[in-house]
Amino acid sequence: MKLLTVSGSPHYHAKESVSSLMYGVIFSLIPAMLVSFYFFGLPAILITLTAVVSCMFFEFIIQKYLIKGPVTIFDGSAIITGVLLAFNVPANLPLGLMVIGSAVAIGMGKMTFGGLGKNPFNPALVGRVFLMISFPVQMTTYPKPTAFTTQLTDVVTGPTPLTALKDGVTQGVPVSEIMTQLPEYGRLLIGNMGGSAGEISAIAIILGGIYMVIKKIISWHIPVTFIGSAAIFAALFWLINPEVYPDPVFQLLTGGLMLGAIYMATDYTTSPMAPWGMIIFGVGCGLLTMIIRFFGAYPEGVAFSILIMNAFVPLINRGFKPKRFGEEVKNG
C-alpha cells in the first residue's frame, strides 16, 4: 500500500479552481463577442484572435524565459485579458498595434508585478490606455456597425455616440439636437452603434453579467453600484441642464460603461475584497466616469476611472473590513 497522506484540515476541497472561474468569465463573454462579430464582421474576429493569441504568447515568453517559472497560460487569465483588450479597441485597429497593446497589457500590466494576482491595475485597461495615448488617431477611428458581409478594406468609419455628443456639446449644440442624429435607445441596447469592438451591446454584456452573478463568479456589489452611481450622477446633471447633459439612460447604454462595470471593474485582483469596499469602489468608478465624460477632454472615462480606483484598492482594503462576528452585540 502507498503511504498515507497527512495534511491539515479541511480534507475536502471545492471543485472551483482559478481556471474554472476564468473560463466561466470567458463563457459569459460569448454573447458580447457574438454581437461584436455580427456588427463589425471579420475585423472583430481577427482583432479578438490576435489579442488572445498575443497575450498568451507574451505570457508564455515571460514565464518561460524571463521568470523561468511555471507556465500558466492556459489558466484562462491571459485569454480574458486578450478578449477584454480586444473589446476595448476599435475593431479596425491595425493588428500590429493590437500586438503591441497585448505586450504592454501582459508585460507591463501583469507580469511586471509578478503575474496573476499581483497586478495593481487591470492589465487590459493598461493596454488600452497605452494604445489610447500612443495611437490616438487609430484608437478613435471607429468603424460603423454593419452586417457581417463587410470587406476588410473599405470600412466606413463614424463617431461613437459619445464622441458625437462631446463634439456637439463643445460646439454649443443643444443635446436634444444632437440626439436626433444618434441611434435611438433600442439600437443602443442591442449595440448597433459605433464604438469599441466589444463594448457596444449593453444587453449582451448584462446577460453575461447576470450569468456570472448567478454562478457566483462575481458578486453584485461592484456592477450595481458602478452603474447605479453613474446613473444617479448623470440624472442629477440632466435635471439641472438637459441642454448640456444627456439623460442617464443614454449615458448607461453608450461607451464602455457596461463592459467596464461588469467585466473590467470586477476583475478579482484589482478590486477590493470586502463588500463595503466593493461598494465604495463601484461608486467611485461611477462618479469618476461621469466626471470625465462631463468635464474631461476625452469623451469616454470608464477606463481612466477604473484605473484610478484600482490605485485606491489597497487603501480601500485597509479601511473597509468585513463585519466581524461578535463585533456588535445584539440581544433580541
Binding site: 476541497h13 478579482y268 478590486s271 475584497m273 466581524r324 462576528f325
Partner: peptide
C-alpha cells in the same frame, strides 16, 4: 488516493471568496 491530495497551489487571485464565506467575518 484520488480524494486525498489537495489541488495544486496557485497564486492568490484575490477573489475574496475566503473573506465572503468566513463565518467569523475575518480575512
Amino acid at each position: 488516493e484520488n480524494e486525498s491530495p489537495r489541488p495544486p497551489e496557485q497564486n492568490c487571485i484575490r477573489c475574496a471568496r475566503c473573506l465572503t464565506i468566513c463565518p467569523m467575518g475575518l480575512e
